[in-house]
Design a protein around this nucleic acid. Sequence first.
DNA 1: TCAGAAACTTCCATCACATGAAACTTTAGT
DNA 2: ACTAAAGTTTCATGTGATGGAAGTTTCTGA
Lengths: 253, 253
Amino acid sequence: MSPARVDTGAPTALLERAMDILGCFDPKHSALTLTQIAEITKLPMSTCHRIVGTLEQGGFLSKGSDRKFRVGTKLWTIAQHAPLSERLRESALPTLARLYEETGENVTLAVLDRGQALYVDRLVGERSIPTISRAGGHLPLHTTGVGKVLLAYQPEKAIEQYLATPLTRPTPQSITQPDALRKDLAEVRKNGYSITRQEMTRGSGSVAVPIMRNGRCVAAVGVIVHLNRLDVNRLVSTLTDAAASIAAELDGH
Amino acid sequence: MSPARVDTGAPTALLERAMDILGCFDPKHSALTLTQIAEITKLPMSTCHRIVGTLEQGGFLSKGSDRKFRVGTKLWTIAQHAPLSERLRESALPTLARLYEETGENVTLAVLDRGQALYVDRLVGERSIPTISRAGGHLPLHTTGVGKVLLAYQPEKAIEQYLATPLTRPTPQSITQPDALRKDLAEVRKNGYSITRQEMTRGSGSVAVPIMRNGRCVAAVGVIVHLNRLDVNRLVSTLTDAAASIAAELDGH
DNA sequence: TCAGAAACTTCCATCACATGAAACTTTAGT
DNA sequence: ACTAAAGTTTCATGTGATGGAAGTTTCTGA
């Protein structure tokens, strides 16, 4: 008789722990000491030490001379073969570069990931304003230009599901009423672009358009500008061209 | 009495296997079925299945509708916090974009990784020629523009160690004689830039310059062009400016 | 449409390997 | 030099990984 396998919901514990450890590395923690990792993951030091050591051997982490661990080149290399990098980023980069040159503004490329906008790439220069978005970062769908586009082109069901969860409010201008957002999204679908005005950051606005493929919105491109430089018509036209160019590049492969 | 722990050289087997599985994803295999993974890693199907399942749950892999696995967004997100992305790529991208616009040629950014040139980024357009280098890919040091720069600025000892291993020869023009390479590297250090002519790919050449920080060469930028368009003087000057600009951006943070 | 094969998934008895408290060593701070 | 904190090693214990085999689904071709 099997001795009452309790099934605490913790099988493959080791692997899950290892993934937790790697998950510690986020925008706020790009370099961590062993102790910090143990604290965040709540793992015993010795266990943590062993796992981190193995990850380091495999090149998934690397230890600096400051005794801090960072994400290793092996992990980075593997990640470059994610569809996100291989297809999207690679295809979009030249166009984004042109877009950046033409506008001189912050340019971002994002996809939908787990109910948030995942920034695949962004180009920021001295001329442009500082932003929160960063490559590899997640931001809410309803407060960003690219996010609203990504959400607008989702199936009805997914939209309602998103609206069912409480909507965060980073600024007073953020849209947090489900009905107001539904209206806004309908507008986005009608126009083919989204606009935000101080919905994420005070003083800046954004315009974004979808990148369509086979009738589905696979990504969104947007620019973030100072509110008083928000020339919607010009930006929409430039962005639409860029989106078409990226879509063509995606099909070209 | 411990029953003669054999220590077959396979401790933390599970984690190592998981890393092996992730390592299957390379430029030639960006999408793999479970069976393919099992074949490559030589793991039993059932074991492979379980590990892959856990990795998928953690978002490190994702299964497409074609039953193939790809690198997941979680892994990709973590990788964006590698110093490679966070510091280097992010700082260099606007400059690379400008470089690409100015030259219209293939632009690459690389660092030294495990005795090879690791391509951190590249910009390729329709106007430029196809290349083998790709973001996340590795190429030899002695046959590429960026590679020769990275090698030239290494300590003597590291250079000799590299020369001690047999030098591959992708084309007849590749430098494979240690003495010839030593001479070439000295030239690179003297001039502050490297030139290749058909040493990696027939018909194309390249120019590359170092990105210096605190007297150390932390990366290299280069362009790859058709042999008959190889205007060394112009490219060197443009590249040197770009390298200085990236170095400034790196310090700025 | 259906049979057969290939790919994938589940099961479970066995024991190898991960576990983590404790002891030990190294590093940083005063 | 001394002390505290961070990091590393050890080892008895039993949990949880293992993988062959059996079951299920999906694909292929006639």
